[in-house]
Design a protein around this nucleic acid. Structure first.
Length: 221
DNA sequence: CTCCCGATAT
DNA sequence: ATATCAGGAG
């Protein structure tokens, strides 16, 4: 691996990180959660859905089922109906209930606070685990274990030339190497906002993009 | 790789 | 009509 190109990418990553912090200083999850359990459920529901729809659904959902205990034992079809509009509702309902039951059985109904136990929960992989750990557990300490790579982070990071990978599991270590650990939470949230507002999947707005000058304007893979 | 799946933008 | 939306499991 040539020294020149790696250095250039690293330096651009620093500039991008700085620009993102300037433009999105308070970037955080747009999901309306009040505790780690709510964020965990909300993030499971957010698969192939939008924050707007998920927020609409969880408002009523947590009014009916505020805790893991209540969510674990409720009627499956009733839960499916409650989360229907987020899509994948059968699989999500099953995952949420088995996950909630495991929290009750093994963690006194609480969300575990480390990566290994998070990943052992049904329906939870690195993206969801990183979101919950970074936003609800480590947000004050900055002791992040990884970067939440969702569809926006994956797309924007690729277009910015921060990775040549398209698999989110391979994008994450690339970003972890390029960005300082204390930026991992903020940077991911800022990349999501940038992805929603400017670097959209279908029609990226290069003219008004706050990262103007730092982007090679790569085409979508 | 396929499947799961409704809501919305283009 | 089709692509895409804070993905994960088999």
């Amino acid at each position: 691996m040539p020294r020149e190109s790696s250095k250039t990418r690293q330096q651009r990553a620093v500039e991008i990180d700085k620009r993102l912090q300037q433009h999105y200083p308070q970037a955080s999850s747009a999901l309306n959660w009040r505790n780690a359990f709510e964020l965990l459920v909300a993030t499971i529901l957010s698969a192939q859905s939008t924050d707007e729809i998920v927020n609409r659904v969880i408002k009523d959902l947590f009014k009916k089922y505020p805790t893991a205990e209540e969510l674990a034992v409720t009627d499956r079809e009733e839960l499916e109906q409650e989360i229907y509009s987020t899509g994948f509702y059968r699989r999500k309902a099953k995952n949420i209930q088995t996950m909630a039951q495991k929290l009750v059985d093994e963690f006194d109904g609480q969300v575990p606070e480390n990566m290994e136990e998070m990943l052992a929960l049904p329906g939870v992989a690195r993206k969801t685990a990183n979101v919950v750990l970074n936003e609800a557990v480590h947000s004050q300490t900055g002791n992040y274990e990884g970067i939440a790579v969702d569809t926006h982070v994956k797309r924007v990071a690729y277009r910015l030339g921060l990775t040549n990978q398209t698999d989110p599991k391979k994008v994450e270590p690339d970003l972890m190497e390029l960005l300082p650990q204390e930026s991992w939470r903020q940077a991911a949230n800022a990349l999501i906002l940038l992805g929603r507002q400017y670097c959209t999947a279908r029609k990226p707005n290069h003219e008004d993009c706050p990262l103007e000058g730092l982007c090679p304007k790569l085409q979508v893979p």
